[in-house]
Design a binder for these strands. Structure first.
Lengths: 117, 117
DNA sequence: GTCGTATATACGATCAAGCATATATAATTC
DNA sequence: GAATTATATATGCTTGATCGTATATACGAC
């Protein structure tokens, strides 16, 4: 990954993107409709923010049939992983973000992720 | 400190503020004129950005005569310190930020900081 | 091919944040 | 007191980011 500190921070500087990243860190991999449901926002909004995270190589995606799964980029430099981990650690205690996790847990008919590349 | 993850990241989301924090982490404590010299920007700009960092309790200041010294807030929560440390770690390798450190090292007549509270 | 679901992108509007200039406040020295 | 240095704040402008709506693309089932 070639991202600079400044670009990483800029990419993190949005509530929707932080909410996505928190979920991805906990779940490992999620498709867009799961994230959309968990955050309770409209789909184009999620899609646009995931695109920003992807442009900055903070997440990577793969298609599986009609679903596109996102996960944290495993090839981040050490300092970037540390920033993300510390941010998610801080976030995990904030009520605003807990709501997303509980809503995801209640989602009906979550697509089954085969985890086959 | 009561800052949220989102507010911390927002406060870090500016090149001038990152440059200030990098210097403060290395130097410990600096007055505004030192930072202004090192960054080579106009004084009101430095002052405004330091004010933003102070509002978010990322730095604290103390007056010593006509100088006002800033340093990192020693009372940050663990996750916030980790984000700052990792960011400064990443920054330390970026050429844009090295320039500030070398310029500071060449500053003539740096005010002597008595370190008396 | 059409239809339905999943996801992405384009567009125009709105809003927040940064900028430089100018000015205000505070301390020091005379 | 006036003058100088150090720092902070107010003002008006501009730029960039986010928003919702509408539309486009991709895949699977039929």
């Amino acid at each position: 990954m070639t991202i600079s500190v400044q670009l990483l921070i800029q990419a993190l500087n949005d509530a929707t993107r932080l909410r996505c990243l928190q979920l991805l860190q906990r779940e490992g991999e999620m498709c867009v409709c799961e994230i959309t449901y968990a955050l309770d926002v409209i789909q184009p909004k999620v899609s646009r923010h995931l695109a920003i995270l992807k442009e900055n190589e903070i997440v990577i995606d793969r298609r599986n049939g009609q679903w596109i799964y996102y996960k944290l980029n495993p090839a981040m430099p050490d300092w970037a992983s540390k920033i993300l981990a510390a941010a998610c650690d801080g976030i995990s205690r904030e009520p605003q973000f807990k709501t997303d996790r509980t809503r995801l847990d209640k989602m009906p008919n979550r697509p089954v992720n085969s985890h086959c590349a």
